[in-house]
């Protein structure tokens, strides 16, 4: 299992060299810390998925002594490991650059990242290779750009609910959000497992 997780870094050795410049770029652009944490978390897992999509990698992995459950588990667990590591690197970079951020920022990005991953990962196992990556890119921009706009649109009808949510203390709000994200991530894992189990290669 550990080998499967490690695989993600081996396949993108070269891309990893760009990781720090990538962070520096966002810092120089004076991006919001939440956005920085979010994009750095996406870097390794989604790069890995892009690699896997291009080759016959499922044939390879399924011919090696791994079960299908393990292959999916390594994706979901590995994503969390790499997210944590990436956020760690981002925190160090931000501190060195004397940029301010808060724990709330981190928690918010973790929640958003998990939500996004939960929604996109199963696509990789449902859709045909080749179509996936454009769709994921598109949904990312919709997610980041469209999400807030959508909320504003629904503002009126959801007034009551939003008012209720807004009135909650920040910690409760964040904890709730994270809990929802983790639950959705787990459901996504289960869905991917079932889908992958039935796949033909």
């Amino acid at each position: 299992m550990f080998n499967l997780i490690k695989r993600d870094v081996i396949i993108q050795k070269k891309q990893l060299l760009l990781f720090v410049p990538f962070i520096v770029f966002f810092i120089l652009m004076d991006a919001h810390p939440v956005l920085i944490f979010l994009v750095v978390s996406l870097y390794v897992p989604f790069n890995a998925l892009a690699f896997d999509e291009k080759t016959n990698v499922n044939v390879l992995l399924n011919s090696l002594p791994y079960t299908r459950k393990q292959i999916i588990a390594s994706r979901y667990l590995g994503t969390i490991v790499y997210m944590a590591a990436s956020i760690g690197v981002a925190i160090i970079s931000l501190t060195l650059a004397h940029q301010s951020f808060t724990v709330t920022h981190v928690a918010l990005s973790v929640g958003l990242f998990l939500l996004f991953s939960a929604m996109t990962f199963p696509l990789f196992y449902v859709l045909k290779p080749g179509y996936i990556f454009p769709i994921v890119m598109l949904s990312f921009f919709l997610f980041v750009g469209g999400g807030p706009a959508l909320l504003r649109l629904m503002d009126d009808s959801l007034q009551g609910l939003i008012q209720f949510v807004m009135d909650l203390p920040m910690t409760t709000l964040l904890t709730g959000f994270l809990a929802v994200a983790i639950i959705l991530y787990s459901i996504s894992w289960a869905v991917s497992s079932v889908v992958y189990e039935r796949k033909a290669f």
Partner: peptide
């Protein structure tokens, strides 16, 4: 297999790092 199932851009050393540890 007929056709390459390994990551194309990678060299054998790295492929070995992925395939090798899979086997006891």
């Amino acid at each position: 297999y007929d056709g390459n199932v390994f990551y194309e851009g990678m060299n054998l050393k790295d492929i070995q790092r992925i395939v090798g540890p899979a086997y006891r």
